[in-house]
Amino acid sequence: MKRTWILAVVVFGMILAGGAAHGAERLMILCGAGFKLPMEEVISSFTRQTGVEVNATYGGAGTLLSQISLSKQGDVFVAPSPDFMEKARSRGHILRESIKGFGYVVPAINVQKGNPKAIRSLRDMARPGIKIALGNPETVFVGMLGVEIIEKGLNPQERDALKKNIVTYGEDFNKLASLLLLKQVDAVIGFSSMSGWYPDKVETVKLNSREIHRIGVGQAAVLSYSKSKPAAERFIGFLASREGQSVFKKYHYFGTVEEANAWIGEKKPVGGEYRLPPEWFRK
């Protein structure tokens, strides 16, 4: 894992150096992978309208924070939860006054189109023969949410059965989606928005409202290391604008916390850290 971060930092620095060498106005965005598809569309529109070239790196929020700590480079950090943004602020990585929110995410079960294994609930994921993927709970926001949902929503026997069904831990949300698309797993604990990414290949199964303990919200902030702060602020403004929000709505993200809670059927807190039980830490 450490070698992967170092390689990412080297590539990251080469991209930034290339932009400086050509004298072009460029931005580097470090973005949680749960926003990848709509973010690519937002970046394309922003570049077309402003001429600013934007490069983006996607990954688990914890991994991105580690990259920022190592490289101390980049222009914008996009996190899936206020808790990750607070960690970035406490480490001096971001300009606090620049933080803007742009889209809410709700945990859900994602399955292959047609739901061939008839997975209708969290308990169904504990049935024998079901192949499951979770995000790495140490670095991926939706992985941490998944562990909390499992730990609080199942009895010990069901929990043990479900854990036996976990065949892999994805390094980010995009990897979880790929595992479903390739039919390598039957279900993941992801976000309701995944079926907005791939409506012809993925379905969303709602969790019971009692099984959802918190939701996330996309937040973007200017990195304190940015050498293009005005352009970074313009990008964040565009991301939070009506045009930017419309892109996320198209991909089934919620525009307000009220919309997210209405879909759940109950009010839920936004963010809030969950301490992983020791047995979930990967060795």
Rank of each mutant, 00 (worst) to 15 (best):
S226A: 09
I189H: 06
E243K: 15
I149R: 05
E211W: 04
L145W: 02
E151I: 08
G146C: 07
D172C: 11
D200N: 14
L181C: 10
Q219S: 09
S241F: 05
T256R: 15
W197K: 06
L207N: 03
S246Y: 11
W197I: 07
D186R: 13
N261D: 05
F173L: 05
V247K: 12
S209C: 11
E148A: 06
Y251T: 13
S195L: 08
L145F: 04
A240V: 08
Y225H: 07
V167Q: 13
K229L: 01
K201T: 02
T168Q: 12
G196A: 10
A220L: 08
L145H: 04
E203W: 03
K183E: 15
G146Y: 01
P230V: 04
N208G: 12
V188L: 13
V222D: 00
I189G: 04
A177H: 03
E259P: 08
L182Q: 12
V147L: 03
I264K: 05
M144T: 08
S193T: 13
I236C: 07
S224K: 10
N165Y: 09
L162K: 01
I166L: 09
A177C: 10
N155I: 03
L176A: 15
E171I: 12
R214G: 00
T256Q: 14
N165I: 12
E259L: 10
Y198G: 05
V188H: 07
Y225S: 13
G170Y: 02
V247I: 09
K206G: 06
Y253R: 11
V188K: 05
R234L: 13
L154T: 00
D160F: 04
A177Y: 02
S224R: 14
I189E: 09
N261F: 01
K227R: 15
L180P: 01
A161L: 06
F238S: 03
I150P: 00
D200Y: 11
L162W: 00
Q184H: 13
I149S: 01
Q184M: 14
I189N: 06
L154E: 00
F173S: 14
S178R: 15
K229V: 01
I189T: 07
M144E: 05
G237N: 01
I149K: 05
H213Y: 09
G216V: 02
F173H: 11
